[in-house]
């Protein structure tokens, strides 16, 4: 049976991708960020997942304004990299898993989540920056990826509660797939940031710290955060954090925090990263380490 073994929360700031692509990794501005993700890459190398479910948002690249799906799952064989306005990122094409994606859609719709099916789309920094941060710069990505795009651009984004419950339904959908697969689910975007208007540049470290703490301590408290609170307290674009709650919902009741990193700034963004292992996976890793 397929199993979600861990969640990977991370910001997806486009400037991080640009810094990597332009060879600025070692510059003083960027080095703390890339050093902060080195343990995450080591964790990925040890764990070697088969499939990543990537919860992210498109930034007016795959989707223009003709159709705005709240939840969309990419069911294609592969996803090419979008030119967002300055040329496509020089990263490998993202390979999908159409059969597994189709199964997830089928299960989720029957579980009353009305998922939009996307059979042809490009992916942007929302997906590729987390891939780079988790897997470095390989010539081909070492995992299959199922993109799950969430509308957080046009208000209102789905609520935290809706996202958390979608995560629970994803867990059930994954576990009803009869193939031994290790799945890591990503929740991306955030943390506190605002990139528009005279208030641009807002950062709220207290909000972010509490959010990271409560992913393991008290997820129900996070689920109750209202849209207005994200916008007001953590910045207009911090609403992206609802996508982390899809990730959290898919991990079951108990999780163990394996790693955390927080840094301000990358461009206009507070960068946050966390690895949450399911209790079962965490115990099995501990047992293996002790043996």
């Amino acid at each position: 049976m397929a199993k979600i073994i861990a969640g990977f929360g991370t910001s997806h700031t486009p400037a991080i991708g640009a810094a990597l692509d332009l060879g600025k990794k070692a510059e003083p501005y960027w080095a703390p960020i890339f050093n902060g993700y080195a343990p995450a890459q080591k964790w990925m190398e040890e764990v070697k997942p088969d499939v990543v479910i990537m919860v992210y948002n498109d930034h007016v690249n795959a989707f223009d304004f003709k159709i705005i799906p709240t939840f969309a799952i990419g069911c294609a064989d592969e996803f090419t990299i979008a030119d967002e306005g300055w040329g496509a990122r020089p990263v490998p094409v993202v390979k999908g898993y159409p059969e597994f994606a189709a199964h997830l859609v089928q299960s989720l719709v029957l579980d009353e989540f009305d998922i939009t099916i996307v059979n042809d789309m490009q992916v942007d920094h929302g997906l590729t920056v987390p891939m780079s941060l988790a897997f470095g710069a390989p010539s081909a990505w070492p995992v299959k990826v199922i993109p799950l795009a969430v509308n957080v651009i046009q208000y209102p984004a789905p609520t935290g509660n809706r996202c958390y419950n979608l995560g629970k339904a994803i867990k059930a959908a994954v576990e009803s797939w009869d193939e031994d697969l290790k799945v890591v689910i990503f929740g991306t975007g955030g943390m506190s940031h605002q990139i528009q208007g005279p208030r641009a540049g807002l950062v709220n470290k207290e909000f972010d710290t509490a959010f990271l703490d409560n992913l393991s301590k008290d997820p129900e408290a996070l689920v109750k955060i209202q849209p207005l609170t994200y916008l007001r307290d953590a910045g207009n674009e911090a609403i992206e954090l609802v996508m982390w709650l899809i990730m959290r919902g898919a991990l079951g009741e108990q999780v163990d925090e394996a790693y955390r990193f927080y840094h301000v700034p990358a461009s206009s963004t507070a960068v946050g990263h966390i690895i949450l292992e399911t209790r079962e996976f965490h115990e099995s890793r501990k047992a293996r380490a002790a043996a």
Partner: peptide, 26 residues
Amino acid sequence: SYQFMAAEMTGMTQEGYANMMIAGGR
């Protein structure tokens, strides 16, 4: 860049905005 546009929206100079971010943000 995004940051250029964001800084222009605030009415700050590019340098002033970048420094505000390095100092921990608004």
